[in-house]
């Protein structure tokens, strides 16, 4: 019996060692070439690589984050260093993980949490499953990034994507034809209780560290309605957190749903993101005193990146405008493009 116990332990230890070595190999591979990381994990890995204590504002949430708030605009207009740690379909457990990683190496003064993931369906077993997966991913990155083998074996899979501190420039246009999606009503859309536990963990941790938290809802007819607005507003009030629902600021933002969305009202393109970013820059600078680093030489790389961003943004917006004009005049350019 004892012999078998020893054998079993030895087997498991060797297995753990193998997994550790493979995980280290994977970590090294993508530290050499960040494009090797899967699209969904790119922002998380990039956040880990940011210079220590260089980020003042952290944004977490699902794809609504990296299609609405542009850190380069925050930088350009008021020198705030921010990073979008958003992931497509991010679960709150993942958001918590990103937040944890963010505060391990950074000292953000403000955390923006996009609220769409508060309504992502998870049951208890999904919660437990996420916890198991997170544990595995934390200590053995082979579980999270195992598909890297395809990129190592065959370089064809590597598609470099330009990310501006987590923000992605989207230029597609697919109009949202509906209207009045935030029509007033009395009901509340209940927030997932599993999601709440993670939100409250983040809020508690932020409060204990003196970090301000803001909930924000990105403009999205597909994901929001008045029932959610009511529930989120009440929830934020209960937690003592400020809440900005951009779906209720349609008149100020002037989102053109025929032109500013990439997928019929789910996400915004760069033209829509510019409007949202401008509004949030004003909101943040009026309500929070975040430092302006523009004249700090140690942040010179931000200036370079912002210059590239501005060029690409202008080009993309003018392309969208042209596409829109084409559609209105019925020319070939008006062809819809889907994401």
């Amino acid at each position: 019996m004892k012999r078998n116990l020893k054998k079993g332990t030895a087997f498991l230890l060797i297995l753990a060692a193998i997994l550790f070595v493979v995980s280290e190999f994977i970590n090294k591979s993508y530290s050499c070439n960040q494009d090797m990381v899967g699209d969904r994990s790119k922002n998380v890995v990039a956040l880990e690589k940011e210079r220590k204590d260089s980020i003042d504002m952290l944004i977490v949430g699902d794809s609504e984050t990296y299609t609405t708030l542009s850190p380069m605009k925050f930088w350009d207009q008021c020198g705030i260093t921010s990073f979008v740690g958003g992931q497509s379909g991010q679960q709150l457990s993942e958001a918590y993980n990103v937040f944890q990683k963010g505060i391990e190496r950074q000292s953000p003064k403000l955390v923006l949490i996009e609220t769409n993931m508060f309504y992502r369906k998870t049951n208890k077993s999904t919660k437990a499953m996420n916890a198991v997966q997170e544990f595995g991913n934390k200590y053995f990155s082979v579980f999270n990034h195992h598909s890297i083998w395809k990129k190592l074996v065959c370089n064809r899979g590597i598609k470099p994507v330009q990310s501006y501190k987590g923000f992605l420039i989207k230029t597609q246009v697919a109009s949202y034809e509906g209207n009045g999606y935030m029509r007033r009503c009395h009901g509340d859309k209940r927030i997932n209780s599993n999601a709440k536990s993670y939100v409250e963990k983040i809020v508690r941790k932020c409060k204990s560290r003196g970090i301000d938290v803001v909930f924000y809802s990105a403009p999205s007819p597909k994901n929001y309605n008045y029932e959610k607005h009511r529930a989120l507003k009440a929830y934020a009030k209960r937690l003592g957190v400020k809440y900005v629902d951009l779906n209720m600021k349609q008149k100020i933002l002037k989102i053109d749903w025929k032109r500013d969305t990439i997928d019929r009202g789910d996400h915004l393109n760069i033209a829509g993101a510019e409007k949202v970013s401008n509004y949030m820059i004003k909101y943040v600078s009026e309500n929070y005193k975040l430092p302006d680093h523009r004249n700090d030489p140690s942040y010179s790389e931000w200036n370079k990146l912002a210059a590239n961003y501005n060029k690409e943004e202008q080009l993309s917006i003018s392309r969208i405008m042209a596409m829109n004009t084409g559609r209105q005049t019925g020319t070939k350019n008006g062809k819809r493009s889907n994401n």
Partner: peptide
Amino acid sequence: RWSAYYALILAVIILGAYGEG
């Protein structure tokens, strides 16, 4: 035998169609 076990386990972990994508 142990090499066969490890190869099988690694094949499942690395080649498995789970997670991202």
